[in-house]
């Protein structure tokens, strides 16, 4: 379903950060911010909570260690005990390398999968962009026009222009884009 957005574009991150601060202070909801590179401090300015990806990483890693040690113990001590080079069945020092590798493998693969899922990214993603230059040299603040009347939209446009936006436009998207808070859910 078509959906309209107000896109205010800046040519530098400094005026954009300034605008975020002022617009939020004026009580206007920012739908999203789109930048060509991670801008330092933007999470705090937008009031975005810390990512919890590292918690997932720890859980995956611990699973990997446990899985490796469990399998090697089951196989080498119970299922098919063999003496190799006079070493005991339970040869912990010799199992450290594989345990370590599986910890890393589980943690890395698991966390990356969570990352792609949470970011809503896949090769089937029929992506729409607010503006082609937002991945190159423009910093965009996005406002949801469906949730504001034309008077408020004009006020926002005026503010953005005052804070140094080089271009302000209305962009109609084929689909509704999730807001920053919805992306967090």
């Amino acid at each position: 379903m078509a959906h309209k957005y107000l896109v205010g574009m800046f040519d530098d991150e400094v005026p954009m950060m300034n605008a975020i601060e002022k617009v939020r202070a004026a009580g206007i909801a920012i739908h999203d911010a789109v930048t060509p590179f991670p801008v330092h401090g933007i999470d705090d300015a937008l009031g975005a909570k810390e990512s919890r990806l590292h918690t997932a990483g720890f859980v995956f890693g611990a699973t990997g260690t446990a899985f490796a040690l469990f399998c090697m113990t089951y196989i080498s001590v119970f299922d098919w005990p063999n003496v190799f080079g006079g070493k005991p069945y339970f040869s912990l020092p010799a199992w450290i390398p594989i345990s370590f590798e599986l910890t890393v493998l589980f943690c890395g693969v698991g966390t990356t999968i969570v990352y792609y899922l949470r970011n809503g990214m896949s090769i089937f993603n029929d992506v729409e962009v607010y503006d082609n230059r937002l991945s190159s040299d423009r910093f965009g603040l996005i406002f949801d026009l469906e949730s504001m009347d034309s008077g408020e939209a004009d006020r926002v446009s005026g503010m953005l222009r005052d804070f140094g936006a080089v271009e302000i436009k209305t962009q109609e998207m084929r689909n509704r884009q999730p807001s920053m808070d919805e992306q967090a859910s």
């Binding site: 999203d32 060509p36 937002l134 992306q183």
Partner: peptide, 14 residues
């Protein structure tokens, strides 16, 4: 992969 460069995506990216 449908990358758009939103603040959330960059946050998780970092």
């Amino acid at each position: 992969f449908g990358w758009t460069g939103t603040a959330r995506q960059w946050q998780r990216f970092e």
